[in-house]
Amino acid sequence: MEQQQVLADLEYAKTLAEDGVKSPLVGGRFGLMWGVLLVITFTVQWAFLSGTVELPQHYLGFLWLGFGVVGGIGTFLLDRSLRDKPGLRSVGNRLDNAIWLFFSLAMAACFVGLLVYMSTRGADYPMFDTMVAIGFAGQGMAYGTLSQVTGQRWMLLPATAALLMAVVAFALLATVVLYLVAAIGIVFTVVLPSVHQLRNEPADVS
């Protein structure tokens, strides 16, 4: 009888451990915010470069500065809304947090490197376009890694889409249409996956 009780208790513990391991990822709100910001920024950049909208050239700098500032403030505010999410500190969510943090730092490092290049060796805008391709490649790596570790196989879809977009972005380097294509790509590689994550988030506990 006692052994049966032990087995029942172990089953209970197994259920709880699995529940923790399979905690849904709760970073969807960050992805959605950054995704929407990127779609807007890429579209405005395309409109500017294509002549659809006529603005002084230095406005592009303000555009990307605004992207960074709004994104940074948004991340800070959204982070505060996450504190009561169950599973927030599961292995999957800690990896999700770390992988996107270092993705952002990697992109920032590339951005600073390009700024140094452009200021010391002259403006070369096609070089700047490589940021788009590198960003998509990084997204593919991030989603692929998360899929492997968390077992969420659906993430292989945005991972594949992002890697394909990296190929497309390299193929379109130094063309104006790159930014319009990138804006559309972001909808499929960031916005829609983030909406899917948000819909699967557990309710708060407090």
């Binding site: 529940d19 923790g20 905690s23 599973g87 927030l88 500190r89």
Partner: peptide, 12 residues
């Protein structure tokens, strides 16, 4: 068991 997968976890 739960803490082995989610660490730390809130009391709630």
């Amino acid at each position: 068991a739960y803490l082995s997968a989610v660490n730390p976890a809130s009391f709630a």
